[in-house]
């Protein structure tokens, strides 16, 4: 089987950019459509009084939307059918389950995590969560 809908997760890191390039190359060879998703992490458990976290999230989303433009251009140059989306929510859940299931994704491309070992212990790696929990294939770009 070949992949029809490829999802790539972006976060501005170099590893994620590399993942994006790989995803573009794949999409172009397989004539698959590409969804580039940038998720602003939002924690239900961290909601505090007087809604003070909301402004921060809204600002992040605004900035991310602008940052997505060059990625679209790059993909358009290679004649790839690309859709981008900025989402607010739990990165792990959205990337591994919710978005792929809602959009019929059959391959998730992610960059290797940019955290050191202690940070990984505390924060947890998004990449390893996706590998463990995604219901479709996952490609980790090192």
């Amino acid at each position: 089987m070949t992949y029809k809908h490829i999802l790539v997760g972006l976060d501005g890191s170099k590893k994620a950019d590399k993942a994006f390039e790989t995803a573009c190359a794949l999409a172009s060879t397989l004539s698959a459509s590409l969804s580039a998703v940038w998720i602003v992490n939002r924690d239900r458990g961290m909601d505090s009084t007087f809604g003070v976290s909301e402004d921060f999230y809204q600002d992040r989303i605004g900035q991310v939307k602008q940052k997505l433009a060059p990625y679209v251009e790059k993909a358009k140059k290679q004649h790839i059918d690309i859709t981008t989306e900025t989402l607010l929510g739990n990165v792990k859940m959205l990337l591994a389950k919710e978005y792929p299931e809602a959009h019929g994704i059959d391959l998730i491309v992610v960059g290797d995590t940019g955290l050191n070992s202690i940070e990984r212990l505390v924060v947890g790696s998004h990449t390893s969560y996706v590998i463990r929990n995604a219901s479709c294939d996952v490609l980790v770009v090192k």
């Binding site: 992490n41 924690d43 239900r44 458990g45 961290m46 739990n90 990165v91 792990k92 859940m93 940070e119 505390v122 924060v123 947890g124």
Partner: peptide
Amino acid sequence: WIISIGITQTKRVNDTM
């Protein structure tokens, strides 16, 4: 320190608490 490096306390952790 935990907050400064970006905590991800999921809803599930919260519910457990």
